[in-house]
Design a protein around this nucleic acid. Structure first.
Lengths: 333, 333
DNA sequence: TTGAAAGCGCTAACAC
DNA sequence: GTGTTAGCGCTTTCAA
């Protein structure tokens, strides 16, 4: 059932139906009614594939994201879908698994599908998508990391690391343990750098053996046990994301330690779950909602202005994280 | 850059380029080379929007899912994206938030976009999507609940509830507490029914006051504290999903109870996180990977056979859950 | 082995 | 106010 069949039934031309659909010309009341009738009789629905071809606009956006098993990413994805749905855009989901090749071919595929724009939470510093974005004329906005020369939004991770250190040091902690995700991930590296820099400015050193490295996933947090053997034993643990902190939390409880009486624990991200642990997790809040909101607005405005205005200059927007003090941190004994 | 420009540069006709692209006719080696060259010079990529219009096949699938904040759903969504990507299909993501109207308009929108098929994890027993699916000719497969008269895959939740009860009763438990999600969600109701039926067959009664009801989300699990006041105090707790069990787990630890020495705890789903708690959670495994794998295969085969074969008869495939005994359950004191 | 031509369903000048 | 027509980029007979 096409626009033609509707036109035929209503006794008008296809273009009249189109005008009715898009309110692109005033119709006689009677004509309007006839068309409306025909549409509902036939249960007609516009073919967006055809419209997309004609308009060179599909009203769809590609989202490339490393995974959904990291709660922070799942939350981002959901916020993106919601923001786009509000604007009547369809989300095309691509999970890259941080695989550079996969990510790249997903990008190419999205372009082939004529999406109006692409949102990318990229997976690796060696992403080929940046170059691809630069070479194509399609609007792309990067989320979660600053990308020089491209439109991007990211959290100021270094500052977030500083916030964490400041909070713990202000409480009086001197002996620290760190659970660091992959140092190749720049966000992680910056959180750690900010954390250590803040401590250094207070003349506090963290011994190298107190800095553990592993994947940014829950099981890595279990390795916190290793830090308990150090002497002096750390009185505060900083994990580079919440999910690792949750792993640590679980292990610490198992060891019979009380949080925060015996040991303080901090994370980074503020995923939903962090609020509900007992004690709830003190963390550095990445303002995901703001990141997504602004990214979507930016992307849609780039799309809107694409044909009309001259090229806007790319810029990286940095969103400052904030400190959320909950129950998992306190003064050292 | 279109197929025309490629044709022009290569000195052939558009149809020849098309034949090259789709290997739908043998080309002279030399022609092939020319076309190949022109394609790479112009960096041509086929416009899938146009191809979709022409072929009446977009190689895209819609996925409607209640949310991504429930880890089980996030895992399902990721598995769907992956399975479809393997088959070179694009996933169009729609999050319904269990909102009947939203879900319905997402379904309609997906149809307008000419997706080849739709996968729906539906949000409510009053979903309008079932009716819509029945009235449209588009292949639809429901996941997570059986839908009479439609293609669907679901876990045998009643049996899963029985498995849980059997395990706990076999360990010698007599006094139980239940944390039940929304009873309007049929899956939940069936898990509970199976659980209670199995106990009843063993002449074990669960007092009504030991059955708490709430949302299937983590904070509800915290209410497990209420069950600790009952006398006799329950020695085993069954939650209708893992995330609620995790909430309970956290609260129980806070109360200084040892799991499973003082109290046993079971969940349902087997989300990734359950493996990493300490102690790891004994749970009923919903085989999400199998659900998704079979759903995708079914959907694609429906799509493939749509024009050729006669209509296949819809059927509900029930996947039996399995028991995963981990550390959170043991004999009562 | 290649090309001409029609058409997928829609929109938008432009004419009436 | 409404209709005619061309064309978005592609595939696919059918003919050469």
């Amino acid at each position: 059932v096409t626009i033609r069949s509707v036109a035929k039934l209503a006794g008008v031309s296809p273009s009249t139906v189109s005008h009715y659909l898009n309110q692109t010309a005033p119709l006689a009341a009677k004509t309007s009614r006839n068309v409306q009738q025909a549409i509902s009789v036939l249960n007609y629905r516009v073919n967006l594939s055809a419209r997309g071809l004609r308009l060179q606009r599909t009203h769809s956006i590609g989202l490339i994201i490393p995974n959904l098993s990291t709660p922070f990413f799942a939350e981002l994805a959901a916020m993106v879908e919601d923001a786009l749905w509000q604007k009547r855009y369809q989300t095309l989901l691509c999970i890259s698994e941080r695989d550079v090749e996969r990510e790249y071919s997903q990008f190419a595929n999205l372009r082939s599908r004529q999406v109006d724009g692409i949102l990318v939470v990229y997976g690796s510093e060696h992403s080929k998508v940046i170059k691809a974005a630069r070479e194509s004329r399609i609007p792309v906005v990067f989320i979660d990391r600053p990308v020089p020369g491209e439109f991007s939004l990211a959290s100021e991770n270094y500052y977030g690391g500083q916030l964490a250190a400041r909070h713990l040091a202000d409480l009086g902690h001197i002996h620290f343990g760190l659970l660091c995700g992959e140092p190749e991930i720049r966000n992680v590296a910056e959180r750690v750098a900010g954390f250590l820099a803040e401590l250094q400015s207070r003349k506090i050193k963290v011994p190298a053996e107190n800095i553990l490295r592993g994947l940014q996933e829950l099981p890595f947090g279990l390795r916190v046990a290793e830090l308990l053997d150090r002497s002096p034993r750390p009185t505060a643990i900083f994990a580079t994301n919440d999910i690792v902190a949750i792993g640590a939390w679980s292990k610490l409880l198992e060891h019979g330690l009380r949080i925060p009486a015996d040991i303080s624990l901090m994370g980074f991200d503020d995923i939903q779950m962090s609020r509900y642990l007992i004690p709830p997790l003190t963390t550095v809040v990445q303002r995901g909602q703001e990141l997504v909101q602004r990214a979507v607005e930016l992307l849609l405005s780039l799309i809107a202005s694409r044909d009309h205005s001259p090229d806007r200059l790319p810029s990286s927007i940095m969103v400052n994280p904030t400190l959320m003090v909950r129950g998992s941190t306190g003064r050292p004994k």
